[in-house]
């Protein structure tokens, strides 16, 4: 029988992979709970998953495509903004769900021991399910509008993985931050709101004036969205430096976020 030795926390607490693996059932049950709860006692239930992206894409089509008359690289504006939202929603939902997750489960965190990182991570289950449903809807749209993205669609999992790394890194750090400082939960939605408009999601880089292009090119999400639109719509591929920088940024954000989380992990019960 293996013995467990508990010592005061050190500077760098790496998550124990063995403990994470043993706690996989919690991850699964939390994910299941999120999904079950979302549709229990709701009138339209699963339809929400369809309604939300359709309505958002519709509004963007009217505002950016209809009123502002922005270019969309040759595809119908609705499909164009839907593709952008697919990537953005994955990023946005993971961060928003993780950020409040520890405080939302305060009773558990202060009473029972399990690897804490499972709490923010378990939000992934529901978000990925939403993504799958929205993606199914997108495939239908591709057929309806007769768009063939070609072989780049095979690279979609790569963009998804990079999105996960970025958003999980920010999400777990925000979850840990919220335990100490509650203003993270006010600051974060506002930042995400600004990012939604500062990133070419509902409009393309073509619409950006040349003298501002450098500003947009500083935003890693721009590189990511270019990747999504290349894979989903067959538009221009992102430049190689963008892909390389994206991979580096994603890895730094992910490991940085996890390190911040683990560093604070053992004080959660005292602070929350």
């Amino acid at each position: 029988m293996s013995r467990t030795i508990i010592r005061p926390p050190g500077r760098l607490n790496l998550p124990s992979l063995r403990e994470l693996w043993e706690a996989r059932e919690i991850f699964y049950r939390f994910g299941q709970r999120d999904i079950l709860l979302r549709y229990r006692q709701t009138a339209v239930g699963v339809a929400w998953v369809f309604i939300q992206p359709l309505v958002s894409a519709g509004v963007f089509t009217i505002v950016f495509g209809g009123i502002a008359q922005l270019p969309s690289g040759g595809v119908p504006y609705f499909v164009f903004s839907f593709a952008g939202l697919l990537g953005w929603n994955l990023f946005n939902s993971i961060i928003s769900r993780s950020a409040g997750s520890l405080v939302g489960n305060a009773a558990l965190v202060s009473k029972v021991f399990f690897p804490r990182i499972i709490v923010p991570l378990s939000g992934l289950v529901a978000v990925l399910l939403d993504f799958a449903i929205a993606f199914g809807l997108f495939v239908v749209l591709l057929f309806v509008f007769g768009i063939n993205p070609g072989w780049p669609i095979l690279l979609l999992p790569v963009w998804m993985l990079l999105t996960l790394l970025l958003s999980v890194g920010i999400g777990v750090a925000a979850a840990a931050g919220t335990v100490r400082y509650r203003d993270v939960s006010y600051f974060l939605p506002w930042t995400l709101q600004i990012l939604l408009y500062a990133t070419p999601i509902a409009y393309s880089l073509e619409a950006v004036p040349a003298n501002l292009l450098w500003l947009f090119n500083l935003n890693p999400l721009t590189w990511l969205l270019e990747g999504y639109r290349w894979s989903l719509l067959g538009q221009t591929a992102p430049e190689l430096w963008q892909v390389g920088a994206l991979v580096v940024a994603a890895l730094i954000v992910f490991f940085g976020g996890v390190a911040i989380f683990q560093r604070m992990e053992r004080s959660f019960a005292d602070l929350i």
Partner: peptide, 14 residues
């Protein structure tokens, strides 16, 4: 293991 000790060692047999 809900909270971490400040000093000392705990050795658990299971």
């Amino acid at each position: 293991r809900v909270a971490a000790p400040t000093k000392g060692v705990i050795d658990l047999g299971g």
